[in-house]
Design a protein around this nucleic acid. Sequence first.
DNA 1: AATGACATCAACCGCGCACCT
DNA 2: CAGGTGCGCGGTTGATGTCAT
Length: 317
Amino acid sequence: MGRSPCCEKVGLKKGPWTPEEDQKLLSYIEEHGHGSWRVLPIKAGLERCGKSCRLRWTNYLRPDIKRGKFSLQEEQTIIQLHALLGNRWSSIATHLPKRTDNEIKNYWNTHLKKRLTKMGIDPITHKPKNETLFSDNHSKNAANLSHMAQWESARLEAEARLVRESKLRSQYSLQQQQHQHGSNNNSVFPSQSSSSTSSSSIQVLDVKEEGEKEWKGYEDSTHLLEFKDLIEGSSMAFSSTMQHDMSMINVAEDGFTNLLLDNSNSDDPSLSPESGGECNTCDGNGGDGGSDFYEDNKNYWNNILNLVDSSPSDPLF
DNA sequence: AATGACATCAACCGCGCACCT
DNA sequence: CAGGTGCGCGGTTGATGTCAT
């Protein structure tokens, strides 16, 4: 069915938002909540379409948005979840508190994708480029098909969890919004200050310095190699679910599983073994890597599902 | 200092889904 | 069930900033 463009009306403004427009939108939502985006601009006295207002709010004006450089932990999470979910930015964003899907998408396209490509890793499949998934007669192997089924099954399960979680979140945010409106608590809205990236009146939570420090470390060649190992470990682990080559299992254990679970210096509790994720390598033995492929795979996927199932810093869950 | 190339990111666009009538 | 409407998502664009020459 055809749909008329939301901004077709003559007079509706497009392009960058002015501080005055931001203020109008903020004040309105602060007082009334956003309600119907369609009617919001009229009620708020904005010459914008509802879609534009919603975008401005969700990607920039919302008080619970963190801006600035992504931390190493955030980068890891993005890479891991992208390997699992692909370009489903909104799903990925639910696991990066205070980050918007748009921001994550931009960050992936401008930073991570290029970096992976430079390292010789396919940013789509997360596999080293010189390694094809079904490069030999394994592609006809029944076990391979079984692994693919496991992959798909785990992926679908993860998706189902994400949907479930997303619904819970939206219910929660709705309740919060109603509560805020009811109590007229304005403290959650930032005080006025200038943004480093735009003329908006919104205060920017400055994590830039911290992020820069972290990335400076990465740009050091030694750390770059470590980063490469990290990413390749992740990639190899994914391919291990597809290939019946037992040597790959060791890589899976040493690479991605550790990446997921061995976050001793992480501030993200969901990524630590204490969070409930089982890990057959956590005992330090690492296993013989060949005797229990399916158990390994089960644990491997459990780890991923735990990551997806956990909610990094949301007190609700 | 001027300018062109490249990088970044806010914002737009079109599509699909969910819900309502 | 079909059609209309609103919303959210993902892809893309273009203005602006930064860097290299």
